[in-house]
Amino acid sequence: MLKTGKKIFYVLWGFLLLYVLYCYLKNPEILSANYIKSFISSYKGHILTVYIIISLVRGFFLIPSTPFVIAGALLFPDNLLLVLLISMAGIMLSATALYYFSDILGFSEYLEKKYPSKVKKWENKLQSSRATFLVLGWSFFPLVPTDIICYVAGIVKMPYKYMFLGVFLGELILTSFYIYSGTTVNL
């Protein structure tokens, strides 16, 4: 029964990811901050609710948070702290889900069989006393997806609190920069 449920989940998740990819390929503008801002603005009476839902759900589709963070800053320029809190909640929800789903989805077994030396190398790095700083640096660097380090941390069983702290601090710095500089940039 569990294997059937897992297969159904894979198929549904795969279809949703393919649909999001298709929409993006058809119209790459859908991930721009202005498009997201106009989409959310179209829900006049429920702008904040829609923004919260999208910010919390986007991580499950492996969509980067950056355009949503900037769109939030543009939508709510008088409430940037709220945008920061919502953005961080979405980022940390995504990080936690990827950390815990790494085993549930079964990719860890595949990677351990296919790349045992690389998995061992990352396990050594993420089990060290400086692992939180590695995760922090990875999360802060805007050109690499934070999702990858969360997933790898889950695979190698890095202590959750260290992964969480590293992602939180790195993303807090980066997201704060996006929010407070995003309001001054005309996109």
Rank of each mutant, 00 (worst) to 15 (best):
V185A: 12
I70T: 02
N186R: 13
I52E: 02
S181C: 07
K3S: 13
Q127E: 15
S117G: 06
R130K: 15
G45L: 00
Y51R: 01
F177D: 06
A73Y: 05
P77N: 06
F164C: 15
L80F: 03
K157Y: 06
P159V: 13
W13M: 13
Y180P: 03
Y10F: 15
I179L: 09
I54R: 00
T4P: 02
S38T: 14
I70A: 02
F76N: 04
L165E: 04
S32F: 00
T183S: 14
F133A: 14
N124V: 05
L143R: 04
Y180Q: 07
Y51H: 03
V152A: 03
V156G: 04
N79H: 14
F15P: 01
Y162C: 08
S38C: 06
A33Q: 01
C23I: 11
Y35C: 06
T96D: 10
T49Q: 04
L98C: 13
M1D: 11
I86T: 06
F164A: 15
P67L: 05
K113G: 05
Y35S: 13
E29Y: 10
L165I: 15
K44I: 08
M92W: 12
Y99I: 10
L174H: 12
L31C: 01
E109V: 06
Y22K: 10
G137R: 00
I36N: 01
S117E: 14
F107I: 14
F168Y: 13
L93W: 06
V156K: 09
